[in-house]
Amino acid sequence: MPSATHPNFTETDRRLAQTLKALAHPARLAIVRLLADRDECVCGEIVDDLPLAQSTVSQHLKALKEVGLVQGTVEGRSTCYCIAPEALAALKTDVDGLFDGLSLSTTDQNCC
């Protein structure tokens, strides 16, 4: 099996896989939705809106920040987070491209 860096895998596929992996947790999806709904930088209030400890929220924010979906800025003693709109738009484009490139037949296939 080829490694993720194999030349047959496109840069888009690698980026999409990393981003989807980061989103593959309900708490991270909730954080993305929360930040997108607020449409502004959010500081400590994220913890107030989720049934998770501060340290857990911080770990999830770190994973989202590593793939570029979330941006963080330090303001005094706290870090404020917001959605990275360009990254979210790129994710949408990549997911749309994935599904546009699939042959999804609606006819009955003799598979499995």
Rank of each mutant, 00 (worst) to 15 (best):
L50N: 13
G68T: 05
K21Y: 11
G44C: 10
R28W: 14
G72N: 03
S55T: 13
D37W: 02
L52V: 03
V57P: 00
S58E: 14
G68N: 07
G72Y: 02
L20V: 03
E40D: 12
Q71I: 09
L23A: 05
G68R: 06
P51T: 03
D39K: 10
G68W: 05
A30W: 08
V47Q: 10
P51F: 02
D39N: 09
P26L: 10
K62H: 08
Q54W: 15
I31D: 00
T19W: 12
D48N: 13
H60I: 04
A27V: 15
K62E: 06
C43N: 07
I31Q: 04
L20N: 04
R28E: 14
R38M: 10
A36R: 13
L52N: 00
V47E: 13
V57M: 00
L50F: 12
D39A: 07
R33Y: 09
A24E: 14
Q59I: 05
V32D: 04
H60M: 06
V57L: 02
L20G: 04
L35G: 01
Q59G: 09
K21W: 11
R33K: 15
S55L: 08
P51A: 04
Q54T: 14
R28G: 06
H25D: 10
S55E: 12
E45A: 07
E45H: 07
L61H: 01
A36Y: 13
L69G: 00
V67H: 00
I31C: 07
L52M: 03
L52W: 04
G68S: 08
L29H: 10
I46E: 00
A36V: 06
D49M: 13
L20S: 00
I46Y: 00
V67E: 01
V42H: 06
L50M: 12
A22R: 00
G68Y: 06
I31A: 06
T19M: 15
S55V: 11
R38H: 09
P26G: 12
S58K: 07
R38L: 09
D48K: 12
L64E: 03
V42N: 06
S58R: 09
H25C: 14
K65W: 08
D39I: 05
C43G: 10
E40K: 12
V32G: 01
A24F: 15
V57E: 03
P26W: 08
R33A: 08
V70M: 01
D48E: 13
R33P: 09
K21A: 09
H25G: 12
L52D: 03
S58F: 07
L35F: 02
Q71G: 09
C41F: 10
Q59P: 00
P26M: 08
L20F: 04
K62D: 07
A63E: 05
Q54G: 11
V42I: 14
Q59H: 10
P51R: 03
